[in-house]
Write a protein that binds this DNA or RNA. Structure first.
Length: 107
DNA sequence: AGATTGACTGCAT
DNA sequence: CATGCAGCCAATC
């Protein structure tokens, strides 16, 4: 297990989760955006944190996408399909290649 | 303590 | 537009 003892109060993961929770409905943010917002961590850490996220958590991980405005590949399967559906439920419209217009929906 | 990996990013080819 | 390479930092082996 990861070193659960942190000295800053909220763990690094918790900080990332907090940032993701701040994304308003109908908006999306990139990993890099979250990483910069949290500070002291890189985009890859954001993905790592979300990957460790338990199912049914209150963190809108679906609103976090990559810099291309697409859903992260995250392996093959339904995961990305579920994410796309969730975003559409929130009012986000995808373009032809399943790309999200960050210029419009970007946080 | 060291090597490997990863839901990333950006530039180069 | 697809593929490759380097930088990135923490978790995991």
């Amino acid at each position: 297990m990861e070193e659960e003892r942190s000295q800053n109060g909220p763990r690094l993961y918790e900080r990332i989760y907090a940032a993701v929770r701040q994304i308003p409905v109908g908006r999306v943010a990139t990993y890099g955006q979250i990483a910069r917002l949290v500070g002291g961590c890189s985009a890859q850490m954001v993905g790592f944190a979300l990957a460790a996220l338990p199912n049914g958590s209150d963190v809108p991980w679906q609103r976090v996408i990559n810099a291309k405005g697409k859903i992260s590949p995250r392996g093959i399967g339904f995961g990305s399909l579920i994410q796309r559906t969730l975003l559409e439920e929130e009012g986000i419209v995808f373009m032809q290649d399943e790309i999200i217009d960050l210029n419009t929906y970007g946080w």
